[in-house]
Lab assay of single mutants.
Amino acid sequence: LEELEQFARTFKQRRIKLGFTQGDVGLAMGKLYGNDFSQTTISRFEALNLSFKNMCKLKPLLEKWLNDAE
């Protein structure tokens, strides 16, 4: 759980530094990986307001997006 919290904080910082909005991330993930995510989902991930199971599902996709975006 602590690792997920740390990743969520780091993800938000890096996303902002790269100049992407939460909506940009959701749209890009849909185009790149075929998984559409709303701005609300990205927001809830960053705020740790998703279930642990959903956080675990999203983490690898967000890590991949972040690596591809950098």
Results as ranks from 00 to 15, higher is better:
2 E>Y: 06
27 L>Q: 14
27 L>R: 13
11 F>V: 03
34 G>Q: 15
12 K>R: 05
44 R>E: 15
39 Q>V: 13
64 K>E: 12
28 A>D: 14
61 L>C: 14
70 E>A: 10
34 G>R: 06
36 D>C: 06
43 S>V: 07
14 R>D: 03
53 K>S: 13
68 D>N: 14
62 L>I: 14
62 L>E: 00
33 Y>T: 12
53 K>A: 13
38 S>G: 14
31 K>C: 10
37 F>I: 15
56 C>P: 01
47 A>Y: 03
57 K>L: 08
48 L>Y: 03
19 G>V: 00
6 Q>R: 12
5 E>M: 15
11 F>E: 00
3 E>S: 10
39 Q>G: 11
43 S>F: 04
43 S>M: 12
3 E>F: 04
48 L>G: 11
61 L>A: 10
30 G>R: 09
15 R>T: 00
36 D>F: 14
25 V>A: 13
69 A>G: 06
26 G>A: 09
2 E>S: 09
14 R>L: 07
45 F>E: 00
17 K>M: 13
30 G>L: 10
8 A>E: 01
42 I>G: 00
38 S>E: 12
69 A>S: 10
10 T>H: 12
21 T>G: 06
60 P>G: 12
27 L>E: 09
17 K>T: 08
28 A>Q: 15
3 E>C: 04
37 F>L: 10
56 C>N: 09
10 T>R: 12
26 G>C: 06
28 A>P: 01
57 K>C: 09
7 F>V: 03
44 R>D: 09
49 N>P: 01
46 E>F: 00
39 Q>D: 14
38 S>R: 11
64 K>T: 13
68 D>M: 08
64 K>P: 03
64 K>I: 05
16 I>M: 09
46 E>A: 01
59 K>N: 02
54 N>M: 15
44 R>M: 13
68 D>L: 07
7 F>D: 01
64 K>Y: 03
4 L>V: 08
14 R>P: 00
39 Q>H: 06
49 N>R: 10
3 E>R: 05
42 I>T: 02
3 E>H: 13
51 S>Q: 07
3 E>Q: 13
29 M>C: 08
12 K>H: 06
30 G>E: 06
33 Y>S: 11
55 M>W: 03
36 D>L: 10
4 L>T: 06
58 L>S: 04
4 L>S: 03
21 T>L: 03
37 F>W: 13
5 E>I: 03
54 N>I: 03
7 F>M: 04
38 S>D: 15
39 Q>W: 07
52 F>G: 10
23 G>H: 09
55 M>G: 07
61 L>E: 08
21 T>K: 05
63 E>A: 03
36 D>V: 10
47 A>I: 11
32 L>H: 06
26 G>Y: 07
36 D>Y: 14
51 S>Y: 02
43 S>N: 10
8 A>H: 01
18 L>Y: 05
2 E>L: 08
10 T>C: 08
7 F>Y: 04
13 Q>G: 11
52 F>A: 11
38 S>N: 15
57 K>E: 10
49 N>W: 03
9 R>T: 11
51 S>D: 15
40 T>K: 15
30 G>A: 11
21 T>M: 03
39 Q>Y: 15
24 D>K: 04
49 N>L: 11
68 D>W: 05
13 Q>I: 11
15 R>I: 01
6 Q>N: 05
29 M>Q: 02
8 A>M: 04
65 W>R: 01
32 L>V: 07
57 K>H: 06
37 F>C: 09
56 C>M: 10
21 T>N: 12
36 D>P: 06
29 M>A: 06
47 A>M: 11
30 G>T: 14
26 G>M: 06
25 V>T: 03
12 K>L: 04
70 E>I: 04
3 E>T: 05
34 G>H: 12
45 F>M: 06
39 Q>T: 15
23 G>N: 07
11 F>Q: 00
15 R>M: 00
52 F>S: 14
4 L>I: 14
40 T>H: 05
17 K>G: 11
10 T>L: 12
1 L>C: 02
66 L>E: 02
70 E>N: 09
19 G>C: 02
46 E>W: 00
5 E>T: 06
7 F>R: 00
59 K>P: 01
60 P>E: 06
52 F>T: 15
6 Q>F: 07
50 L>I: 11
51 S>K: 12
19 G>M: 03
59 K>V: 11
52 F>C: 09
26 G>W: 12
10 T>Y: 12
51 S>V: 02
6 Q>C: 03
29 M>K: 00
64 K>M: 07
8 A>Y: 00
65 W>Y: 06
57 K>S: 09
47 A>N: 12
44 R>C: 09
46 E>I: 00
33 Y>I: 08
10 T>P: 00
40 T>M: 09
34 G>P: 08
29 M>P: 01
62 L>P: 00
40 T>E: 13
10 T>A: 11
21 T>C: 04
18 L>V: 03
7 F>E: 02
13 Q>L: 11
15 R>C: 01
70 E>V: 11
17 K>Y: 06
51 S>A: 06
25 V>G: 00
44 R>Q: 15
36 D>M: 05
2 E>C: 01
15 R>L: 01
6 Q>D: 13
25 V>M: 03
65 W>H: 02
6 Q>K: 15
58 L>A: 13
30 G>N: 14
19 G>N: 12
24 D>R: 04
11 F>L: 04
22 Q>E: 12
30 G>I: 08
35 N>L: 11
47 A>Q: 14
18 L>E: 03
19 G>L: 03
26 G>K: 06
46 E>Q: 00
49 N>K: 13
51 S>N: 11
26 G>S: 10
1 L>S: 11
45 F>G: 00
54 N>Q: 15
34 G>T: 07
35 N>I: 05
3 E>K: 04
55 M>V: 05
57 K>I: 05
31 K>D: 06
17 K>E: 08
32 L>F: 07
51 S>M: 03
